[in-house]
């Protein structure tokens, strides 16, 4: 111990303090796998199974014509057929690679934009309201002008993704920075973190949870924008993505194909969120003690 004091009252204090520390520290343990399976995995799996059962019951009850509501087995057949043809992963990859590349571009543009809006008062007054207003504009509205600007090609798709996702990412960063507790800024200032050092060591790490929430929403917007673009701008020159798959299903009156395309779009959107963004967010929140166990 660092103490140099040898008076009985003081040597005693170390033990007292150790006792207090032990009494007041909560034990944190990880949830066992069985409990995770039971509490986190079982409920959604049950829900999905119930939906499929309900779907099958509706088909059996013949509530509508079979070309309007195909049985689940037909959709599974379409899936198996695509898998056997080897096109399934190709179609998914076409869309996912476009979506992720577009998202990364949006990230590269939205991050500096958000920083400038958050820190420069004039810019904030000028484009802040437009930026948050743009979030409520459905990104499909950008498809017609983008087609005329760029033609039916990949650039047009990326333009639509950017217009949809950049405002979300920038806004997430702005609100993240706005929510940095003033106490952290004061503490940083007394430690000598001002200007760039302050931004790097205090503001940006403190704004990370808000920024991540913005990224998550940015991905959702990217994916939606891309699907809108792919549905409207399908052309043989563009590789076959999930949106085109859906549009082809409509053209061929292939209802199982349509159902399959919708399910795949949904599953990919959820999977990216579950595999990338949720773990990232949980990690950040848990390390800061912001994740409440329930």
């Amino acid at each position: 111990m660092a103490s140099t004091d040898t008076s009985p009252a003081h040597s005693d204090i170390a033990g007292l303090e150790a006792g207090l520390d032990a009494l007041e520290t909560k034990a944190t343990d990880r949830t066992p796998v069985r409990q995770v399976l039971l509490q986190k995995v079982l409920p959604p799996v049950t829900a999905v199974l119930l939906v499929i059962v309900l779907w099958q019951v509706l088909v059996w009850a013949e509530v509508t014509d079979e070309y309007k509501l195909p049985p689940p087995a037909d959709v599974a057949d379409s899936l198996q057929q695509m898998w056997l043809e080897g096109t399934l992963l190709e179609v998914i990859w076409t869309s996912v690679s476009r979506g992720l590349l577009g998202f990364l571009l949006a990230l590269a543009i939205g991050t500096p934009l958000g920083l400038i809006v958050a820190r420069v008062k004039f810019v904030r007054a000028a484009i802040g309201p437009i930026l948050s207003g743009l979030q409520s504009l459905p990104s499909v509205a950008w498809v017609p002008p983008a087609v005329l600007w760029f033609g039916l090609n990949d650039q047009m798709m990326y333009a639509v993704i950017l217009l949809g996702a950049v405002p979300s990412i920038a806004n997430g960063l702005v609100s993240g920075i706005d929510q940095v507790p003033p106490l952290f800024l004061r503490a940083g200032k007394t430690l000598g973190a001002t200007g760039l050092a302050g931004a790097r060591h205090i503001v940006l790490p403190a704004a990370l949870p808000g920024y991540l929430a913005g990224l998550k929403q940015g991905w959702a917007f990217s994916w939606r924008s891309l699907m809108a673009a792919e549905i409207i701008a399908s052309s043989p020159d563009l590789g076959l993505g999930l949106g085109q798959l859906l549009e082809n299903g409509r053209n061929n009156s292939d209802m199982p194909g349509i159902f399959l395309a919708i399910l795949l779009i949904l599953i990919v959107g959820i999977a990216i969120d579950l595999l990338i963004f949720s773990p990232l967010e949980r990690r950040v929140l848990r390390s800061r003690g912001l994740l409440v166990k329930n």
């Binding site: 303090e17 520290t25 003690g289």
Partner: peptide
């Protein structure tokens, strides 16, 4: 050294939320 000065030599890797108010 500073952590040991405040008698928290074991707390280097502890996160803030894992510490009590006094710590």
């Amino acid at each position: 050294r500073l952590l040991e000065l405040v008698r928290l030599g074991d707390a280097y890797k502890k996160r803030v939320h894992e510490l009590s108010g006094g710590m």
